[in-house]
């Protein structure tokens, strides 16, 4: 059981490093896209709706536009999909155990 514990601990550490890298990479990628979209003048029809500006209106500030886009990104499916970094290896190991020993 010690070997299984060792595999779990080392696997968790390695996958966490991968997860952190992929998360940061994906966020940086999205931020770059938002910046490029703002600079092109192509704002995907995004309109500001918040406490100060209930009525809504076009973004006037680049930082506000990017902050809003990043907030939408954090709530989207993509950051949750990155959790697959933990899930996929566990299933791969399960499949491998079945194929090696019981198939």
């Amino acid at each position: 059981m010690f070997a299984l514990l060792r595999l779990s601990v080392i696997g968790f550490i390695v996958l966490s490093i991968v997860y952190i890298f992929v998360s940061f990479y994906s966020r940086a990628k999205r931020r770059g896209k938002l910046e490029a979209a703002w600079d092109r003048g192509d704002r995907d029809g995004d309109w500001r709706v918040d406490e100060e500006d209930k009525a809504g209106g076009p973004f006037v500030d680049r930082d506000a536009y990017i902050a809003d886009g990043m907030k939408k990104y954090d709530g989207s499916l993509r950051p949750k999909l990155i959790l697959g970094v933990y899930v996929v290896p566990v299933f791969a190991i399960g499949l491998l155990i079945y194929l090696t020993n019981f198939a």
Binding site: A3, L4, R6, L7, I93, L96, I97, T100, N101, F102
Partner: peptide, 15 residues
């Protein structure tokens, strides 16, 4: 190979 390296997860040696 058990839970170690290389990751074959082979437990059925006697079989």
């Amino acid at each position: 190979t058990g839970w170690g390296w290389p990751p074959y997860f082979k437990f059925d040696t006697s079989n």
